[in-house]
Design a protein around this nucleic acid. Structure first.
Lengths: 164, 164
DNA sequence: GGAAATCTACTCGGATACCGCGTGTCCGAGTTATGGTGG
DNA sequence: CCACCATAACTCGGACACGCGGTATCCGAGTAGATTTCC
């Protein structure tokens, strides 16, 4: 199991279809987004409730309802999507082993537990660099690199599928 | 569960006690290292078999045997320890969802699957930055910052505990 | 014909099952030093 | 005194149980638009 989960992957792929004018439709339902990509429908619906709680998408209920981006795609970073879906789970959680040394007899001195653990500090720095990369890309960035590869009629084909 | 596991934490803490001359002893057994820090003995033994396979430590069998570093601590990076213990597990594993789009009817065109997925590319860059940090620290670096905090007689106390 | 009731399709939220993997434990096999025994 | 054997402590490797969390599914409740019914 990877640290960045399949749920994030599903969520990101679905969000890309919400970038842009959607060819007449202003929102797409979770079912359509899921079936369009061959991923579990109910699971995607669950992901979108998290995205809504995080304020990244807006939901419209009832028939013809669905989701649309709450903000312009340029202002939504990949990091926000990751944290919305899987929460702020740390890359490494320190067990504070340094204070368990047997010579302390269960009473670690203050010098042993002061500040952050040296190992933990390295991991925190690694995590910060990782998140920095994720925060440097927006939904619009990735959507652009996707539509650059696709032929011009692809978005029309997708819109036709969504309406049909 | 974090991406960098508890096993790595145990392994690193144990390895730090193998940095330096060990005050007369030239190796320490897995049992001593584990009990010194109050962590599961058998589990640490398992970790050290992985460290040995990776060529980071040398084992001497029989009574009074144990482990010692296979190379100078300055040349062993944190990244090597992480990969030795938990293997090269990716930060993110791409499911190639881009090729599943329903409008392809199960036959994705070549433009859709050429090169690396745009999402995957971002994740790979994030992973590379993370690993870059882990590779920039050696066992000696962290061991130094630990012994800087400890008083002078701490290493003697540890040596006494290991021998007694 | 218009208003109200019904129906349908959707979102929302919780409950639950499944399963892979990290964690931890146990056991047997092989190895080496130590201590004891017999020639 | 020396060679041989038994014992103890260790490493090695595999097998296995447990629990957590990600993945996936199902179901009931609530809502909004479409359809039908009734006056």
């Amino acid at each position: 199991m990877a640290h960045i989960t399949t749920g994030v992957e599903y969520g990101l792929h679905c969000l890309f279809y919400l970038v842009g004018p959607l060819e007449g439709k202003q929102s797409a339902s979770a079912r359509d987004l899921a079936e369009l990509q061959g991923v579990p429908v109910e699971y995607v619906a669950k992901l979108f409730t998290k995205l809504k709680k995080a304020g990244l998408v807006l939901a419209s209920e009832g028939v013809g309802g669905g989701f649309r981006l709450a903000r312009p795609a340029e202002s939504i970073t990949v990091l926000e999507v990751v944290e919305a879906i899987e929460g702020k789970k740390p890359l490494f959680d320190c067990q504070e082993i340094r204070g368990r040394c047997a010579v302390f007899n269960g009473r670690p001195p203050t010098w042993a537990t002061r500040g952050t653990c040296s190992i933990h500090a390295v991991m925190l720095e690694a995590e910060a660099q990782m998140r920095k990369v994720l925060a440097s890309y927006s939904l619009a960035d990735i959507a652009n690199s996707l539509t650059c590869k696709a032929p011009a009629n692809y978005s029309r084909e997708v819109a036709k599928w969504l309406n049909g």
